[in-house]
């Protein structure tokens, strides 16, 4: 430690050779990858794979969340359609009931008018 710090730093910070396996992988990776192709698809094994693997659980969780969300949305849509159908049926029932009541009213009205014609003193 008695040398000057700059010399010590220069000695300590000489470039380090990467491992032979990494060197092979890197060369394979660079030479196999056409310059304008999609690099992610061509990355092979090792370090690149490790970084992608870290995102796999996140991607899986995102897929599950998206699936659940879609299913939920479909269910809501289905329930809304069922509700609309029920409403349509209720309106139809009310319409039919109303027609029947009108008919009954007409019959009662015609019977009561014929009764007063036959019995004018009543």
């Amino acid at each position: 430690m008695s040398q000057d710090l700059e010399s010590q730093l220069r000695a300590a910070l000489r470039p380090i050779a990467p491992s032979a396996t990494f060197e092979k992988r890197l060369i394979a990776c660079v030479t196999d990858d056409p310059q304008h192709s999609q690099p992610k698809a061509n990355r092979v094994g090792g370090a690149g794979w490790r970084s992608r693997a870290r995102w796999l659980p996140v991607a899986a969780a995102a897929c599950v969340l998206i699936g659940v969300g879609l299913q939920n949305r479909l269910q809501v849509r289905r329930e809304r359609e069922n509700g609309l159908e029920a409403r349509r049926q209720v309106v139809e029932a009310l319409r039919v009931t109303s027609q029947k009541l009108d008919l009954a009213y007409e019959i009662v009205k015609s019977q009561s008018s014929s009764f007063t014609d036959e019995n004018p003193g009543v």
Binding site: L13, R14, P15, I16, A17, P18, S19, F22, E23, R25, L26, C29, V30, D33, Q35, P39, R43, G46, A47, G48, R50, S51
Partner: peptide, 30 residues
Amino acid sequence: QRSVYSLALRMLGTRDLAEDLAQDVFMQLN
């Protein structure tokens, strides 16, 4: 590779991260 890897290793502190970074840099260079 020695220069890029050494710079990455001494900046980030671990071999895994340095290898990742060096690979990314060379892919970007390509």
